[in-house]
Simulated scan of single mutants.
Amino acid sequence: MRVPAELVAQMRNGPTRPQLEAVAHTLSYDGTIMGETMSGKPATLRKWASVTVPTLVMVGGASPAFFHHGTQTLVGILPNAQHRLLAGQDHSPADDVLAPALKAFFLS
Rank of each mutant, 00 (worst) to 15 (best):
A49D: 01
L56Q: 14
T55N: 06
D95Y: 08
V53K: 10
P93E: 07
L74N: 03
E36H: 11
I33N: 04
W48H: 10
A43C: 03
P64C: 11
V59E: 10
S63I: 03
Q89T: 06
G88L: 10
V51E: 01
A94G: 10
L86K: 07
D95P: 03
S92L: 07
S39W: 07
E36V: 08
D90W: 04
S50P: 02
T37P: 00
A87C: 02
T73P: 03
Q19S: 10
R46F: 01
V57F: 06
R46I: 03
A43H: 12
D95M: 06
T37S: 15
P42Y: 05
V97N: 09
T55M: 06
T37H: 14
G70P: 01
F66E: 15
Y29A: 11
P79C: 06
A87F: 05
P100L: 04
S39V: 04
A22S: 15
S92V: 04
T55L: 05
Q82C: 01
V53W: 03
N80H: 14
P79I: 01
H91T: 13
V57P: 00
T71A: 08
Q82Y: 03
M38L: 15
H69K: 10
R84L: 05
T26L: 01
P42G: 04
K103A: 15
A65Y: 15
L56C: 07
D30W: 06
K41H: 12
L102P: 02
R84W: 02
T71N: 08
E21V: 04
A81P: 04
M34P: 00
V97P: 03
S39P: 00
L20Q: 07
A99V: 09
L85C: 05
P64I: 09
P64Y: 07
V23W: 02
L85M: 11
A81R: 11
F67E: 09
S50A: 10
T73C: 04
A65L: 15
L98R: 07
T26G: 00
A43R: 15
A65I: 14
V23T: 15
K47Y: 00
G35V: 03
M34W: 12
G35D: 12
L45W: 12
V59A: 14
L56Y: 09
G61N: 07
P100Y: 05
K103R: 13
H83Q: 11
M38K: 10
G88A: 06
M38I: 13
H91G: 11
Q89I: 01
A94R: 13
Q89N: 07
V57W: 06
V53S: 09
Q19Y: 11
P64N: 13
L85A: 06
G40I: 06
E36F: 05
L85G: 02
S63V: 09
T32M: 09
P93G: 08
V51I: 15
Q82P: 00
T26C: 00
H68L: 09
A65K: 15
L98S: 05
T32W: 12
R46M: 12
V59C: 08
G35P: 02
V23K: 05
P64D: 12
M34L: 15
